[in-house]
Design a protein around this nucleic acid. Structure first.
Length: 148
RNA sequence: CCAGACGGCCGGAUGGCCGCCUUCCGGUCCGACUUGAUCGAAAGCCGGGCCGGGGGGAGGAAAGUCCGGGCUCCACGGAAACACGGUGCCGGGUAACGCCCGGCGGGGGCGACCCCAGGGACAGUGCCACAGAAAGCAAACCGCCCCGCCCGCCGAUCAUCGAUCGGCUACCGGGGUAAGGGUGAAAGGGUGCGGUAAGAGCGCACCGCGCGCCCGGCGACGGGAGCGGCACGGUAAACCCCACCGGGAGCAAGACCGCAUAGGGGCGGCCGAUCCCAUGCUCUUCGGGGCUGAGGGUCAGGCGUGUUUCCGCGCCGCCGCCCGGGUAGGUCGCGCGAGGCGUCCGGCAACGGGCGUCCCAGAUGAAUGGUCAUCCCCGACUCUCCCGAUGGGAGGGUCGGGACAGAACCCGGCUUACAAGCCGUCUGGCCUC
RNA sequence: GGCCCGGUGGCAGAGUGGUCAUGCAGGGGACUGCAAAUCCCCGUACAUCGGUUCGAUUCCGGUCCGGGCCU
């Protein structure tokens, strides 16, 4: 997953939330916005700019105390991270930032439904991108992406 | 077999696919520096990316942050006194503890066993609401009893009213009492017998209490014989007294690097004494004098070091309020330690010692996992079979569930949460032999 | 992660070993032609579990919530 960057700082999360592009599913909430322009001054100093033509995609995760105690929050974040690792590199538009928020249903929903929530979220927000790789198996597609 | 007590262990297993963090090795690429030098090439070293391979990767509570330490910085010169906080039967263990072990005393249980902040109330002060006669010096009050006086009544004698004597008795006075007095958490030893005018440790027996003596024990304490006849209520998780312990803060400690802003601004208050003295004003008999006093020195002053005092130290125009600016960037601290396991020895035990062996998490929007399948356990429903049959057992199927909970500098404890299961020791009861 | 505070009616907010003030809100009544204002009356609470004490909101421990601070 070399292509996926990570949102870590609070201002980055607030910027995505201010864009107000949100999709609520039983298992998660998806927010997204276009990244600030390449090499723009808003980008924090020291943030390395990755090469890659039309930009990278970056993801952040949020699990608030409403989800549960520390064990429940960790588990919710891990499930979301696994679903994101399966979907976003192939189907999410680049040059965008994404924030995935855990809900109470994140823990009880089956993993297939969780993945389906994510893809419909991408479709609803208009950031779905058909996989250009022609590989038949997901592994092959991922490998090609990595090679690029 | 049933019921129970205590101590300990474990905290789902296996496999497939896809991942994360860290460390080591090899390869490859990139960058900085140094040597080298004709630009170069090359070598060394450092850092980073990718690929391949090997090793390691949450807990018994990682939790609450309630105690004790290590470690780091500040005060570290100290002292004394005063505070303040904590602990509190005895003896051990320990680096230390409010922890642990073994005892003692008290309480509970048929028992195994469990529970107890368990120093001091004759150093002092305070409090004990309501109720009650009285709540802390022990007396007053009601009541009981005796004596005196004597209103009155009754009886007897002398006998005309009346007098004398005896008995009972209201009021009053004097005295003896602490047995009794609807209370109350608590009432000045308790029960029984004797005793007395009524009573009372007034006397006796037992129990309790106190005092010193002897014996056992390191000690808390226990036992014995004796004496005193009882004087000494509770509360110290009320103040307090005694003994012992404690300097303050905490890894957001602290060190280095980088970035940014600034050596900030506004308002209010205080800006003292003295010495040196630039400058300016002024007087002048030209030697100098007076006033001013930027700046500097000393003292004072303020703040900090728990308070005060003494000296000492640091920061300084000071103090209060408000505004403004920057910041959760990186590296280190950061894991060989009061360490784990095994075994032997000492000890009732906690624990200590010797020997051998092992290296065993280091994340930082925070790794240690995600998913699928099979197995295991539990529950509900259902099918078949068996039996000593409104119940039980065996096998199969479907569905659901499998706890409490996530390291954040590290240890030793305590407390709290926790499904299911396993092991050992012991107690009581029932049945059979 | 560490340190430090606080839980009292629907809300705010005193109290402190002896049966918990006060204000606003709510309900009822009086006054009024009807209201407002005013007056009277009423209901409702010490976060929770233990311990000390005769007696606990208070004192002492343990939990559960809520809040603040760190350079």
């Amino acid at each position: 997953m070399a292509a996926i960057g990570r949102l870590k700082r609070r201002p980055e999360f607030l910027r995505v939330a201010d864009a107000r592009r949100k999709w609520v599913a039983p298992g998660l909430i998806l927010q997204t916005t276009r990244q600030a322009g390449q090499g723009s001054p808003q980008r924090p100093a020291g943030e390395r700019v990755e090469n890659g033509g039309d930009g990278d995609l970056r993801v952040g995760f949020t699990a608030s105390r409403k989800v549960g105690n520390a064990v429940a929050r960790n588990r919710a974040r891990r499930r979301l991270r696994a679903a994101v690792a399966e979907i976003l590199p192939r189907y999410a538009k680049r040059g965008h930032d994404y924030v995935v928020i855990a809900r109470a249903g994140t823990l009880t929903r089956s993993f297939d439904d969780l993945v389906a929530d994510l893809t419909t979220g991408l479709r609803r927000l208009g950031v779905y991108r058909a996989a250009e790789a022609l590989g038949t198996s997901p592994e092959h597609a991922t490998e090609r992406l990595v090679e690029r």
